[in-house]
Design a binder for these strands. Structure first.
Lengths: 173, 173
DNA sequence: CGTCGTGGCTAACGGCGTTAGCCAGCCTGG
DNA sequence: CCAGGCTGGCTAACGCCGTTAGCCACGACG
């Protein structure tokens, strides 16, 4: 499989990611992105058709990295739902802006590397012994916990560790 | 408790809501909102300090209406987690843009009517017999299912009814 | 040595939220 | 009865945003 991006395009994505993680989605602007690279905004369009295409690359990064995190957890403690959940939560909370960007819009499946979506889902599916419905329920729970926490929807004094534990206990087969 | 808004402000919120529900968050613009009311954008600032304040009112509406939906479900079938979940899902999917707007940002607690957040949470908490951790886990599951569905994150052929059923069965005490 | 692709640039467009400042009409108090 | 001020419109404008058009310098290559 050919490289998805030219070296310059990869530099741009790296700068975009730094900007996003440091300052949030609102700060990810074609002009500030260009600034950080020492060029002017219109030059970015020599490398990407539009801003969305840059965001798609960030989404692909997030998917690939969370897949790696889950695979590592699986390798460390095979079959453990708790370990998988811990890895998911840790990754998402370590990259909240990236997680939101990748998550709060329709998945641009056509523009993503083939197999990436499946790869990200497989460790959980294996831990569920192929039970698709259970895997989706657990994914929804984990995503819900993470996204509600990131957006500050839980009361400040909520014991989220306990809620995670409670949900996982009960979701475990 | 005094009225939160003047009549004119309520008209503006109503127009904002129609715009949002018909055309999505991107279409909710101070200019198009003003257009729909037959005035110019700057005039809106006689009624609201900024766009965020309008969005807060929409968030409050969503919270109040979903609380009503849950209370009605509770009245109809007291203690049933399934009925509550069904009501939550139905409400959210009937108003996807409103649900996202109200959900995908930090809760503006200071600007919301007192007690509203609690009221929205109470039916579920009652169904969980006061078990806060369980209630939060179930809320995360329900929110995750709804938001992933709205954003098209599940595969097109996913059987979401089955995933809901599976999650609820297992979360039910 | 010319030609062409690459990757910069400036200028500009239309749309965004928002501000400043103006004004018509109405309500109210003297 | 009229003066004053409040209410709720208006226009013009600012500084952002994503994006396009069109120009140009430079290096690779036939």
């Amino acid at each position: 499989m050919a490289e998805r991006l030219t070296p310059r395009a990869r530099e741009i994505v790296a700068a975009a990611r730094a900007l996003l993680e440091e300052s949030g989605a609102a700060a990810l602007t074609m002009r500030t992105l260009a600034d950080r690279l020492g060029i002017k905004a219109p030059s970015l369009y020599k490398h990407f058709p539009d801003k969305h295409a840059v965001e798609v690359e960030l989404t692909a990064q997030m998917l690939a990295e969370s897949a790696e995190a889950l695979e590592a957890a699986e390798a460390h403690t095979p079959g453990s739902l708790e370990t998988l959940a811990e890895a998911y939560r840790t990754y998402a909370l370590a990259h909240p802006h990236l997680y939101c960007l990748a998550t709060e819009q329709p998945l641009p499946r056509a523009e993503l590397p083939a197999g990436l979506e499946d790869r990200a889902a497989l460790p959980l599916l294996r831990a569920c012994a192929g039970d698709l419905d259970l895997a989706r329920a657990i994914w929804a729970f984990a995503h819900g916990m993470v996204i509600l926490e990131i957006h500050g929807r839980f009361p400040a004094d909520a014991d989220l560790d306990a809620a995670w534990k409670r949900g996982l206990k009960v979701l475990h087969v």
